[in-house]
Structures are given as C-alpha cells and as structure tokens.
Design a protein around this nucleic acid. Structure first.
Lengths: 122, 122
DNA sequence: CTAGCGTGTAAGCGATCGCTTACGTAAGAA
DNA sequence: TTCTTACGTAAGCGATCGCTTACACGCTAG
C-alpha cells in the first residue's frame, strides 16, 4: 500500500482496532494526542502515527496552528466507504431475496454469526 | 494482523482494490478462481490468496466439495462493517448538523485539501 | 532571553503483506 | 489405469506496517 486511492486508505485505516477506537473517542469532540494516548498501551508517537494514518485517509483533521487540541473528525472518506459498502450490500441482499423466493428455508443461509468481541492488538 | 477480530479482518480485506473488485464480480454469481484471475495482472495463486483473505474475513464462501465453480458471497462480516461505519456516521453527522445551526457554511467539498471548518468552540 | 511542555518525525527492528515460482492434491476424460 | 485440468499451499523475496527510542520544532510561561 503505497499511496493508494482514498477508498483503500479509508478501509486500511479502519482495519486497526486502535484507530477505530480513536475515531469513537473523537466523536465527543476534539482531543489532544496526549489525551488519546493515555487510553492505549503504547507510546505517544505511536498514537501520533495512527493519527497520521487517519489523517491521510481523510478520516480526521488536525489543526496545525494549535499544538494542543487539534484532532477532530472528517466525513469525506467515511462517506465514500459507507457508499461502497452499502452498494454491495444492497445488491447482494437483493440477490439473496430472490433466492428466498425459490428456497423457503429462510433460517440459516450461510450466516455464521461469530460473536467475537475481544479483538486486541497483538 | 495476526488473527484479528472479524471486524478488523473485514476492513483489512476491503482495503485492497483487487479484493473489492473480486467482491463486485462475485455479485453476479459464483465464479471459479481462473475466471477471476484473467481480469487481473497477477498469477492465479495470487488471486487464490486474495480469496483466502476474503474467506477468512467472512466475505466470501468457498464450496470445497466442488473444485470448479466455488466462490460466492457471504454477508455476515459486511453487515458488521456496515453497522460499525453507519453508527459512526450517524453520530457525527448529527454533530455536524448541530454545528450547521450555528455555522451556515457547510460547503461539501473534499479532496486532498481538507477544508475542515470545524469550529473548535469547546 | 531561557526553560519547559506538547508535538511531529526520523531511524531501526520484528512481523506481516502481496506477489512470484514450484510443488502437491483432487476430480473428470481417455 | 494414466493424463489433464483446476485448485491450494509452501517457500522465498521486496515492500510495508506497527511499534519503539531519540531527536528537532513550535508555542507558552517566567
């Protein structure tokens, strides 16, 4: 991944649990790097690098004028990602609905819901 | 990424343009690995490995009984990914709407220039 | 001015990714 | 049976990721 398109960068950024958690925390308002870093078992530069990834993906914006209080959310890339994923879902959910008209076994197609929540970094 | 949670695996799988294109092609119905491989400038084992990534992410299902015609779509992980992304969007679009009541300059534009006009009022 | 704080970034390391070629396996045709 | 087809997987290589420590820059307080 070396300067990918915006959509790929957005998905790649969302693939990391720490980065997703950063986005969740930023929903409540802008935060400093240090404010974010205390919640994760890694150094502040590591958090800063995660923020750089999110920034290049267009998911956060950093106000460089102020050195404190600078990380906030952006919507552009997430809109793209949501649009792509929803289009896929809409199309093949439609396909599954068509199948249902023939196969009336609408209980379990091929959906194995994996109740997995403990994903942690390494 | 070493045995990540399902959501991380799904986003990571979607981060690759080739894999996203594979998903799009599979919307039309099951395909063989060779059928897929002819569309990409890479070897057939490479496509097979992409499919393995998609399979582990829960985005495609492979019918191992038949060795031809075996790759089709699955919805479980995409539902998770869509749910996560939509929840984020809903929450912070609401925040932006609240801002709009104060700032009427919500010009929707985004490319490399992040003209994020988020007022850091608090 | 200097001292101190908060931050970004460079260098380095181990692990993983994406791709290649080469090999091994399973099902159908002769 | 043997041959062919389609596929999966192992090994290897260059590039990237995620993290660390160390250092440099910008702003603020005194």
């Amino acid at each position: 991944m070396v300067a990918q398109d915006r959509l790929s960068s957005a998905f790649a950024a969302l693939a990391d649990p720490t980065r997703r958690d950063i986005l969740i925390r930023l929903r409540s308002g802008p935060l400093t790097v240090s404010d974010l870093a205390v919640h994760y078992p890694m150094s502040r530069p590591a958090v800063s690098q995660h923020l750089t990834v999110l920034e290049k993906a267009g998911l956060v914006a950093r106000d460089r004028r102020a050195q404190w209080k600078d990380c906030s959310l952006a919507t552009a890339s997430l809109d793209e990602a949501a649009a792509w994923i929803e289009q896929q879902r809409a199309d093949w959910i439609e396909r599954f609905d068509l199948l249902d008209e023939h196969l009336r076994n609408r209980g379990e197609h091929d959906r194995e819901t994996d109740e997995h929540t403990g994903g942690e970094n390494r």
